[in-house]
Write a protein that binds this DNA or RNA. Sequence first.
DNA 1: AAGAGTATGATAATCATTATCAATACGATT
DNA 2: AATCGTATTGATAATGATTATCATACTCTT
Lengths: 150, 150
Amino acid sequence: MGIGAEERLILEDYLRERGQKMTRPRETVLEAFLKLERHVTAEELFAAAQRLDPSIGQATVFRTIKLLADAGLAREACPDEGARRYEHSYKHEHHDHLVCLGCGAIVEFKDPAIERAQDAIYVKYGYRPSNHRLELEGYCPVCAKKKVGV
Amino acid sequence: MGIGAEERLILEDYLRERGQKMTRPRETVLEAFLKLERHVTAEELFAAAQRLDPSIGQATVFRTIKLLADAGLAREACPDEGARRYEHSYKHEHHDHLVCLGCGAIVEFKDPAIERAQDAIYVKYGYRPSNHRLELEGYCPVCAKKKVGV
DNA sequence: AAGAGTATGATAATCATTATCAATACGATT
DNA sequence: AATCGTATTGATAATGATTATCATACTCTT
Ligand SMILES: [Mn+2]
Ligand SMILES: [Mn+2]
Ligand SMILES: [Zn+2]
Ligand SMILES: [Zn+2]
């Protein structure tokens, strides 16, 4: 069983349910995405997909990453001032991000106390929860040293 | 003492320190901003400023709202899928946002437990804190009712 | 193999924001 | 109050990410 077989099936099911088709370009984008274990922009994904198939178009990458997100295989995370970024969603639990403003290093974390407190906020105001985004910005130990006193 | 006198002085000091000048357009944008007690886009601010002075240019609004942010009078908050939004910062403490995906209603809240837990994360990973962004999305009581079962 | 309908890639269009630049306004100094 | 060196302005073009268009190509079921 090849890499990404499970994800491929998920995408196929998702497409079939909606009368859409599994195509070669979509396979290519999925494969490129699964190989990139990072928070990736559409442009980076486009470059990776082109390495697998130079004939692939940019528009297709934008369209497909959205499909992957709808299908539950990808999820938006860590927008990069201007560009969206996506990360794996399938078998990758929700988490928050601590990002270094100096070098871009990203720590992924999940704090039960924070998650619980957020749920309490929803309850307090009678809102039905959908999703949340928590991003902590700062300077990693290395970059903090470089900017002493700033 | 007119409305916004304090803020005006803050802006003047900020500009003087950097060899920049207090100008009529900047006054106009500040006045328009202070009157808008909401999370506002540059475009909305532009419209409001034009009502005060039809000759004002859009570029000036973009430039000035950034100045206000640097000067500590404004702060980015609640980006509106595509466009930045700004809110008052002077004498308006940090807070997080709970936003309704149905009608756009925004609840501002501050949870000491969450803030504390966030600080702990910074400590745990040795990061120097800069700022953080927490946004809870969901459906307000009214909109939740309209979408029962969705 | 054929047909109906979806997907593709190239390209143009959007939208928010920024850069450019000649003309103008500030404000310190005289 | 007039002068002068700079900073600022508004109009406009440019940018960058994303989306829309559309003629052609592909999928998948029959
Ligand atoms: Mn992540
Ligand atoms: Mn707010
Ligand atoms: Zn760093
Ligand atoms: Zn609502």
